[in-house]
Design a protein around this nucleic acid. Structure first.
Lengths: 143, 143
DNA sequence: CTTATTTTTGCAACATTGTTGCAAAATCTG
DNA sequence: CAGATTTTGCAACAATGTTGCAAAAATAAG
C-alpha cells in the first residue's frame, strides 16, 4: 500500500507529495488503466489540472506509468509493471467494448506481420478489443 | 485520378464538392497516412477548419478513410483499401521512427496473445514502429 | 529541528483539436 | 432552371496539452 508507493517514488527520485502519492496509489489500486479524468475524480483533494498533468508527465518520464491511446483519442494511464527495460517497446492492451475498461496484457509473442521490403520493426503497440470477463456474460456480438 | 475520386464519392453518396474532391484526392495520392494539418497544407484553397473536420468525419462514417491514433495522441488518416467489410476490425500500421510517416499494412495474421481467463477478442489494432525503407539506410539503433 | 536550497503547486494564459448551431452558398434532383 | 437538400464558413465552446512565474511544500545540510 503506502509503502509500495513511497518506495516506488523514492526509487525514481520523485518527491513524496500528496498529489503524487495519491495519484500513484490510485493507479496501483485500479485494476485498469485510468484517464486523467478518472484519476482526478478519485482523488480526495481537488488538485489543479496542471499539477495532475505534470504529475502524470513525471511518472511517464520515469516509466512509473505508461499511456495507452485509444482509437477515439482518449488517453489512459496504467502502472508499468514490466521488469526488463526493453519490454517497454512491446505493449499490448485490451479494450473492453462492454465496460470500456482497458487492461494491460502480458507481453505477447511478437509475430511480425509481413512488412514491405526494406522495412524493419523495432517495437509495436497492440490494442485488442472484445469483451472482458464480466461483460462476456451478457454476450452480444461474438464474432 | 479524378475519376476514381468521383466514383468513390458517388458510391458512398457523398456530394462532389471541391473540398471533398481535393481532400480525397490528396489522401489517395499520399503514400502515407496524413494528419488533418498535413491535409490542410496540401489543399489549394484555404477551406475552413470546420469544413475539413466535417469532411473527414463524413469520410470516416462512410469508411472511405480510417484513422490511426499514434501514441502521442496525433491522429492520421488514410484511404481505406480493404475490400471485405469485416477486415476493418483488424488494422495494422507502421510508424517510421525516422521520417514519422505512417503506412497501412496488409492484414496480419492474428495470433491472439494469451488473454486473461474469460476475455474474448473480437478485433485489434496493431501499430508497429521501426524504420521504413528510406530511413533504414541511415540506420541507427536496430534492435 | 531550523534554515537554505530545490521542487512542486496553483493560477493565468494560450495553442490545438473536437464539436455544434445557424444562415449563406453550393450541390443535387426533377 | 427552380426547389429541396447538403455543405460551407463563421462564431463559439469544451477539453486537453503546455509554459511561465511566484508562492508553498519538500528535501538537504548543518
Amino acid at each position: 500500500m503506502k509503502d509500495e508507493v513511497y518506495t516506488l517514488l523514492g526509487n525514481k527520485n520523485l518527491s513524496k507529495t500528496p498529489c503524487r502519492v495519491e495519484i500513484l496509489n490510485t493507479l496501483i489500486e485500479a485494476g485498469t488503466a485510468l484517464s486523467e479524468n478518472d484519476i482526478r475524480n478519485k482523488l480526495s483533494y481537488n488538485f489543479d489540472r496542471t499539477t495532475i498533468y505534470r504529475t502524470i508527465k513525471s511518472f511517464l518520464d520515469q516509466d512509473v506509468i505508461h499511456s495507452i491511446s485509444l482509437d477515439n483519442g482518449e488517453v489512459r494511464y496504467a502502472i508499468t509493471r514490466t521488469r526488463e527495460k526493453h519490454i517497454e517497446h512491446f505493449h499490448a492492451h485490451f479494450y473492453c467494448d462492454g465496460c470500456t475498461n482497458v487492461y494491460c496484457l502480458p507481453r505477447p509473442e511478437f509475430i511480425p506481420p509481413q512488412l514491405p521490403e526494406g522495412f524493419v520493426a523495432s517495437g509495436f503497440d497492440l490494442l485488442i478489443n472484445g469483451k472482458c470477463k464480466n461483460c462476456h456474460n451478457h454476450r452480444q456480438d461474438i464474432w
